[in-house]
């Protein structure tokens, strides 16, 4: 394990920030461009994971374990969110026979 953890010695912090930013923006583009509700959901998961990675990197950078505990809580939250969200998607599909997000345009008003 020692030689693996030596591998990050020297990766600058802003490269971690750039990686997380890029993946977060990919998630945002996914939410904005797709119409399948499940894929929109997966993009939200991608954004959550980008933030998780950044929290873990900052936790190591500041030598503070709180960041990794936050990641643990975010994972518990994501599990709850996915369970409820997929139940809603299943119910929408049962009522409208589609997972197209535009079927739900009455939610706009």
């Amino acid at each position: 394990m020692e030689n693996i953890t030596q591998a990050i010695h020297g990766v600058p912090l802003n490269h971690y920030i750039l990686l997380s930013t890029l993946i977060f923006c990919i998630g945002v583009v996914g939410v904005l461009t797709r119409r399948n509700a499940i894929i929109i959901f997966m993009s939200v998961e991608l954004m959550l994971n980008a933030v998780n990675l950044l929290l873990a990197a900052f936790s190591v950078y500041h030598n503070n374990a709180s960041g990794q505990v936050f990641v643990f809580f975010i994972m518990a939250l994501a599990a709850a969110e996915v369970a409820v969200g997929l139940a809603i998607i299943v119910m929408i599909y049962r009522n409208t026979h589609s997972v197209d997000i535009n079927v739900l345009n009455k939610l706009k008003w």
Binding site: E2, T5, I8, H9, G10, V11, P12, L13, N14, Y16, I17, A56, A57, S59, V60, Y61, N63, A65, Q68
Partner: peptide, 17 residues
């Protein structure tokens, strides 16, 4: 870029995670 953070991420305590 405006932050000018370029310090390397160094694991100080091996048992952190």
């Amino acid at each position: 870029k405006a932050l000018h953070l370029s310090d390397p991420v160094i694991l100080q305590a091996q048992n952190l995670g």
